[in-house]
Nucleic acid binder design. Structure first.
Lengths: 212, 212
DNA sequence: TATAAAAGTTGACTGCAGTCGAGAATATAG
DNA sequence: CTATATTCTCGACTGCAGTCAACTTTTATA
């Protein structure tokens, strides 16, 4: 009877996640203890650790679920006819909004995502795969439409955009960029990355000095 | 007598730092307790907290000292006649090497530097100021030599390079890039950022398809 | 030099993340 | 249905980061 156990496990996992979302929102991540969370989920403290390796793993699992949803929604519903630049801004701004919605959530999530512990790498890889599966088609289309060089690996291209996204978020956390400025900042950075930072050779060099 | 106190404080601070470097190197950051560290420095546990706000602050202070030294050394001794691209690669690779020398040191340092807590922002700002003071002259020289567009704010330019640096480090932590590959990867990314990701308009568009 | 105020030090104490062995619940075998 | 193996659950326990009120040392004042 391949089921009673498996069903209970799913239930318990869900109970933990639900209690976590509620408590973390009510009192914040730091102010919620594992014992409290266990009580709220109707289980013992130790049990939590057979579902999640650490406290922040719980937060992390929640963020990842949300992000996967958002990504999927975006790329299936996104306007494929928009200029490539706009598409990329739309995608990363969605991610940005989710991350910055709750400062502490976002900070912990990013710290783990950008600079993960060796031990967390396996999960990380899955997420990266998803990420590439979603972005590559867009990049290929952009190449076909002549909006993107064909002599650069797609992996590099995603790197450039992801790097600038990390920069934006970092700038937000350090106060350089406010929530309101974020979108236009990101668009500017992305445009500059597409155009290049060095003056255009020959014919276009004059154009490069537009707004001094 | 404006001194006995101040002198002792400097001594104590140095003692803590020295003990920390030794213990963290011997047994690792996680495996060294504050109590141990206090004993090694010949002071009481509580005293440490009147010099450093948290345990990782100690690590952080050490990393920052090192980085400031490195930066200063680099920009004063750097070969000003090297192409701009090479200069930037040299600077960020030095930072990269320091960060990746000890995985755990680097991870904690970056997590705090890129995505700091609100409470740590003040110190952070100082470091950023230093960073800009060192980079801006190089960028201005590059602009004069025609290696860099003049219609982009220098702040944005540093952003682009810093973003790619963050990307490189992130890629190292996630295993995408090995220590050996780092330098050539960074150089490629920086070159692409300078050239731009989109095909060059008109005259240069054919050239853009060099290595498919 | 005596005394009060300020600054610095201390380790016992608190609270919490994460462990572990004992025991309950479920599955499997005879 | 009973016996045994396996998997899951639990909370008492451990170890450590960080606090705090009592205490010590330095400085300021007279």
């Amino acid at each position: 009877m391949a089921g009673i156990r498996e069903m209970k496990k799913q239930q318990t996992r869900k109970a933990i996640m639900q209690a976590a979302v509620r408590l973390f929102n009510d009192k914040g991540f730091e102010n919620t203890s594992i014992e409290e969370l266990a009580r709220a989920a109707g289980i013992g403290k130790g049990t939590i650790y057979s579902y999640f390796r650490t406290k922040s793993d719980i937060l992390h699992a929640f963020c990842e679920d949300e992000l996967v949803c958002l990504h999927q929604e975006l790329t299936t519903h996104a306007d494929q006819e928009l200029p490539f630049l706009k598409q990329m801004v739309a995608i990363y701004m969605t991610e940005f909004r989710m991350i910055t919605e709750n400062r502490e959530f976002g900070r912990l999530f990013l710290q783990q995502t950008a600079f993960p512990r060796t031990v967390d790498l396996k999960k990380h890889r899955e997420n990266e795969d998803n990420y590439f599966r979603l972005l590559f088609p867009l990049l290929e289309k952009a190449q076909e439409r002549g909006e993107l060089r064909k002599d650069i690996e797609l992996l590099s291209v995603t790197g450039h955009f992801y790097g600038l996204y990390l920069l934006l978020v970092s700038a937000w956390f350090t106060g350089w960029v406010t929530t309101d400025e974020a979108e236009s900042t990101l668009e500017t950075l992305f445009r500059q990355a597409l155009e290049g930072l060095q003056p255009h050779p020959a014919s276009t060099s004059a154009e490069g000095k537009r707004h001094a």
